[in-house]
């Protein structure tokens, strides 16, 4: 997979078939995944509008997940024939397509990890003050939404910055995280 194709993928400039193929190629190439993460993260932080560059592809990943509820709720899978024995309801057949979707999930999970968000849904105990009890993993969409806001806030956050370097220093630092995941 060429970098140019990766860029087109990020920009949503590929046809559906090309996108499908590009995602396949991306999933098969860890180094290219790193490049994708790096491109996405840097674009997201630099661009005032947040994670614009990746939204198309991330949407596709999210859509893939949404279209495959069995990944999220494996109990809903239809029984699978396994040599004459009916599989248990909670057995997930890992066929090619499902492997691919699981890979989508892996990418999505890695993307979420980039943001390094600790998310806590709240039951407010005091008006205006959030309770911090209870945690849950944020969904892909929630993670994206928070990331976008953090990125946009970063452009205006100057306090404690070393000469205003903070925002871009975090980008540089952030891509280290990307590269090692």
């Amino acid at each position: 997979m060429k970098n140019q194709t990766l860029s087109q993928l990020l920009d949503g400039e590929l046809s559906p078939d090309q996108t499908e193929q590009a995602i396949d190629d991306l999933l098969a190439n860890p180094k290219m995944q790193e490049s994708w993460y790096a491109q996405h993260t840097i674009r997201a932080v630099i661009k005032n509008g947040g994670a614009q560059a990746s939204c198309n592809i991330v949407d596709k990943v999210a859509a893939a997940i949404a279209n495959e509820p069995t990944i999220i709720a494996p109990d809903n899978l239809p029984p699978v024939s396994t040599g004459g024995h009916q599989a248990a309801d909670n057995v997930v057949p890992i066929g090619q397509k499902r492997t691919k979707i699981l890979s989508y999930v892996a990418i999505a999970a890695s993307f979420a990890a980039i943001v390094m968000v600790s998310y806590s849904p709240q039951q407010a105990s005091t008006p205006g003050i959030a309770d911090t009890t209870g945690t849950a993993a944020p969904s892909m969409a929630v993670t994206q939404e928070f990331q976008s806001m953090i990125v946009q806030h970063g452009e205006f956050s100057g306090a404690a910055a070393l000469n205003g370097l903070v925002a871009y220093a975090k980008v540089v630092n952030g891509s280290t995280t990307v590269a090692t995941r």
């Binding site: 390094m116 968000v117 600790s118 998310y119 806590s120 849904p121 709240q122 039951q123 407010a124 959030a130 911090t132 969904s139 969409a141 929630v142 994206q144 939404e145 928070f146 953090i150």
Partner: peptide, 12 residues
């Protein structure tokens, strides 16, 4: 348009 469904807080 938002995916955030309830009162929530975040710490990073």
């Amino acid at each position: 348009a938002s995916a955030i469904e309830s009162k929530a807080s975040l710490n990073m």
